Amino acid sequence: EEKRQVKQVAKEKLLEQSPNSKVQVRRVQKQGNTIRVELELRTNGKKENYTVEVERQGNTWTVKRITRT
Rank of each mutant, 00 (worst) to 15 (best):
T60E: 15
N33Y: 06
S18G: 03
K7M: 15
K3G: 09
S21L: 04
K47T: 13
K64Y: 06
G32A: 05
N20I: 05
N49I: 14
Q17I: 15
G32Q: 04
W61H: 07
T62L: 14
Q17T: 12
G58E: 09
E48A: 07
T51C: 08
A10I: 14
N33I: 05
E40A: 05
T34E: 04
R4Y: 08
Q5C: 08
Q24S: 14
R26Q: 07
V25Y: 03
K7Q: 13
K3P: 04
K46N: 11
E55L: 07
V9K: 07
L41F: 04
N33T: 10
E48T: 11
V37Q: 00
G58H: 05
L41E: 01
K46Q: 10
N20H: 11
T62W: 14
Q31A: 08
T69P: 03
Q8L: 06
K13W: 06
N49C: 09
G58R: 03
K46P: 02
V6S: 07
K13S: 08
Y50N: 00
R27H: 10
V37F: 02
E1L: 04
E55I: 13
T43N: 12
R65C: 08
V6N: 02
G45N: 08
R68M: 11
V63F: 03
E53I: 14
V63N: 00
V6G: 09
I35C: 05
R68E: 05
E48F: 07
Q31F: 12
R36H: 13
Q8E: 08
L39A: 07
V25K: 01
G32E: 04
R42W: 15
R27G: 11
T43C: 05
R68Q: 10
A10G: 03
R26H: 08
V63A: 03
K7F: 09
E55Q: 09
T67A: 08
V25F: 06
N49P: 02
T34A: 08
L15T: 04
T51S: 07
R36M: 14
Q5H: 09
Q29N: 11
T60N: 15
E40F: 07
E53Q: 05
I35S: 05
Q57Y: 12
W61S: 04
T67Q: 09
K46F: 11
I66L: 04
Q17Y: 12
S21I: 04
Q31S: 13
G58T: 02
K47M: 11
R42H: 13
V28T: 04
E55A: 06
N49A: 09
T34R: 09
K46E: 08
T43D: 07
E53L: 12
Q31G: 05
K22E: 14
N20R: 09
E48L: 07
S18W: 15
L14A: 06
E38H: 13
V23P: 03
V37C: 02
R56L: 12
G58V: 03
V37S: 00
E38Q: 12
Q17W: 11
G45M: 05
V54E: 00
E16S: 08
A10M: 04
K13E: 04
T51Y: 10
Y50S: 00
Q5E: 10
L41C: 06
W61Y: 14
N33Q: 09
T43S: 11
K22Q: 13
Q57S: 12
V25N: 01
E12G: 07
K7R: 12
T62Q: 11
K46G: 08
G58C: 05
E12A: 15
E55M: 10
E53A: 04
E40R: 06
K13C: 09
T67W: 13
Q31C: 11
T43I: 12
K64D: 01
R27A: 09
K7A: 15
V23C: 04
Q24C: 08
T43Y: 11
N59T: 10
K3V: 15
K30Y: 15
S18Q: 12
V28I: 13
R65S: 15
W61N: 04
V23Y: 01
R36P: 00
E2D: 12
K13Y: 12
Q29D: 09
K22T: 14
R4N: 09
Y50A: 03
N44Q: 06
N44C: 07
E1W: 02
K22I: 13
N44V: 07
R68Y: 04
T51A: 09
N33G: 08
K30Q: 14
Y50K: 00
K7E: 15
T34P: 02
L39P: 00
I35H: 10
V6H: 03
V54K: 00
T34D: 04
E16T: 05
Q5N: 08
T67N: 05
R27C: 07
S21K: 02
E12R: 12
R42E: 14
R65Q: 13
K46M: 12
E40G: 02
E48C: 06
K13Q: 06
A10Q: 01
Q29M: 13
E1H: 08
N59R: 06
G58N: 09
I66H: 00
N44K: 10
V28E: 01
V54Q: 00
L15S: 04
R27Y: 08
V9Y: 04
E53S: 05
N49V: 13
R68I: 10
R26F: 06
L14H: 01
R56P: 04
N20T: 10
K46R: 12
K3H: 14
K47D: 03
I35V: 09
L39M: 09
L15I: 05
Q29G: 07
Q57M: 12
Q5R: 13
V25I: 11
T62P: 03
E38T: 10
E53H: 06
Q57T: 13
L15P: 01
V54N: 00
N33E: 08
V54M: 12
T51W: 13
E12F: 02
E48I: 10
G45Q: 08
T43W: 09
R27L: 09
E12D: 14
T62E: 13
K47Q: 08
Q24K: 15
K30M: 15
P19H: 04
R27Q: 07
V9T: 05
Q24D: 05
E48W: 10
E40L: 10
T60M: 12
N59L: 08
T43L: 11
L41I: 11
K64M: 13
W61F: 08
K13D: 01
N49S: 11
Y50R: 00
Q29R: 13
G45E: 07
N44I: 07
S21M: 04
R56S: 05
G32S: 04
Q24E: 10
E1R: 04
P19A: 04
L15R: 07
T43H: 13
T60S: 14
I35L: 09
T62I: 15
R65G: 06
Q8C: 08
N59P: 14
E16G: 06
E16R: 04
V52E: 00
T62K: 13
Q8I: 11
K7V: 15
K64A: 10
K47E: 05
Q57E: 13
T60Q: 15
R65N: 11
R27E: 04
L41Q: 03
E53K: 02
Q31P: 01
A10L: 08
A10H: 02
V25S: 01
R27S: 12
R68V: 07
S18F: 15
E53N: 03
N49Y: 15
T51H: 05
I35F: 15
K47Y: 11
E40T: 12
R65D: 09
P19S: 03
V23F: 02
G58Q: 05
Q31Y: 14
A10N: 01
Q24F: 14
T43Q: 10
K11P: 02
W61L: 12
T67I: 14
G32H: 04
N49Q: 12
L14C: 06
K47L: 14
